[in-house]
């Protein structure tokens, strides 16, 4: 699911393995969007990493091999020191089928960016399916969306050749189903413009989490986080400037 969520944004990337788990940071070709992923050791039934190692993987190749696994299969990933290949083993729960695949690794000279800790002006958590719906609907009208966070709520608005559209979400607490709540923490009003093409792309991570958190400050990249039980997938998107 994680590979599915990011494979259309980045093609080749290093899976950085160390004591804390498997991490990945990669920018898209245009340097407008960045994905940062972390799968913590606690999320694996067994995890061992003797030395820090970067596995340079072509995500399309990895995706092809992962398609050979059944949904409930146990997956084991293995790589030696200074590896040429990443080994994947799929086993069904009855232990009567074992599938073994190797994918070739590559040397990827990847630029790592330092992402400063930021006190965001607005932090909004909403159902991830709702966010996906809004992005898809507005992309039919325009290529850009304005996102405005005020004490009234968060407003997504766009204008295009056929007309305009806007969706406003107000804070609402759902006691029975907290994953359907919308919460807005506001330090200061924020108004930014973003490309919808990227936002729709990020929404491929919707299946990873029932909620998504948007963190916004004026004139800095938007942070979109899908939290998992033992890790996260974060996307950063540079704003459009100077409307």
């Amino acid at each position: 699911q994680v590979v599915d969520a990011i494979k259309d944004l980045v093609q080749d990337c290093n899976f950085d393995c160390n004591d804390s788990g498997i991490a990945l940071q990669a920018m898209d070709n245009s340097h407008v969007a960045l994905v940062a992923m972390h799968l913590k050791t606690e999320g694996f039934s067994q995890y061992r990493c003797d030395r820090n190692i970067a596995l340079g993987v072509n995500l399309a190749s990895l995706q092809k091999v992962l398609r050979a696994a059944q949904n409930e299969d146990l997956l084991t990933l293995k790589a030696e020191d200074a590896p040429d290949v990443l080994s994947l083993v799929f086993e069904n729960s009855e232990n009567d089928r074992i599938s073994e695949y190797d994918i070739k690794l590559m040397d990827i000279d990847q630029e790592h960016l330092g992402i400063p800790d930021t006190e965001y002006g607005a932090t909004v958590t909403l159902p991830s399916a709702e966010f996906q719906r809004i992005c898809r609907d507005l992309m039919l009208i325009s290529e850009s969306v304005g996102i405005e966070a005020t004490k009234e709520g968060i407003k997504f608005s766009c204008a295009g050749d056929i007309g305009s559209g806007a969706v406003t979400l107000r804070q609402n607490a759902n006691v029975d189903k907290p994953e359907l709540s919308t919460t807005i923490e506001l330090q200061e009003p924020v108004a930014l413009t973003f490309s919808l093409k990227y936002l729709v792309n990020f929404c491929k991570a919707t299946g990873l989490s029932s909620t998504v958190t948007l963190s916004l400050s004026n004139e800095v990249p938007l942070l979109i986080e899908y939290k998992m039980e033992h890790g996260f997938v974060r996307f950063y998107l540079a704003p459009k400037i100077g409307d």
Binding site: S30, H31, V32, L34, E111, G114, P116, P221, G242, D243
Partner: peptide, 14 residues
């Protein structure tokens, strides 16, 4: 019209 900013304008390589 607006221009699309790049992440390198905000985040520096480490």
């Amino acid at each position: 019209t607006s221009t699309q900013a790049r992440l390198n304008d905000f985040f520096k390589p480490i």
